[in-house]
Amino acid sequence: MAILLKDLVNKNVPLNGGHRMCPGCPTPVIVKQILMSTDHPKVAANATGCLEVATTIYPYTAWNIPWIHNAFENAAATIAGIESAFRALIKRGEIAEDRKQTKFIAFGGDGGTYDIGLQSLSGALERGHNFLYVCYDNEGYMNTGIQRSSATPIGANTTTTPVGKVSYGKKEPRKDLISIVAAHHIPYIASAAPHNWMDTMNKAKKAIEVNGPAFMDVISPCVPGWKIRTDEWKGISEAAVKTCFWPLIEIENGEWRLTGESKKIADGKMEKLPVEEFLKSQGRFKHLFKLENKDVIKLIQDDVDKSWNYYKRMAGYND
């Protein structure tokens, strides 16, 4: 059944206002898109990070569903414990009738997912727990003050890869987490971008309903970290996809495909924009537009093209 905005607006939003995320932060929107994609009862676990910190400052919580924060690196293990408890309590008849279809979702930033929580995630995926792990990927340790992570792209100015007289920012390309997760051969994996809410919600619905582990990596432009205006993230999310910096991917039972704008680009029905279109409005890349750094933009473009070609090949397109 298609997801319709006119239906959604009449439903309770799982994350209330009054949270203290930055103005113009897309992460609460991502949470809304993920959690409202199905009507199942849900329990969420959250890794330490912006979302956790800013939505549950004691004695206030923005969460309308059962929710737990344990630590930074263990959201996957925590949700695994909850999901296991669910199976045990179902067996023993201790779960109320209206909760028997409960679904389990973990949220972590890229720090908690690509880096410190990768082992915990890998373990939970391998063990086959029935849960969805969502990485809201703002490409850095934003909560602690904009440090680099392994999700930070080449050339980004962060507080641990600052631009200086001899440095243009981060030197290394992003880690290909989608492929790492894909190597676990779990039933459902996707990347998503919140400007394309329909694509994100359709993916979330599949991810939540599939039997077994599912993973989604959702780009989350960061107002202070990317140095953008508070009303800008939707356009930047869109540019990320249209430049193929952030391809929309879906891997269902090992079958790779491209979706949304990425599919149109691969099919030749939409123009692939140069990466500058993604970089230009972000303060973290401002220095790259100086003459002395023009090679870095080429470096980024080469990295984007290499990844894009790889994902296209995986999705069955010939170069």
Partner: peptide, 16 residues
């Protein structure tokens, strides 16, 4: 896959 996850999952289960 580790004791860190052993305690993390135990906390999750007990909290559930």
């Amino acid at each position: 896959e580790s004791e860190h996850s052993a305690m993390s999952a135990t906390v999750g289960a007990a909290a559930a």
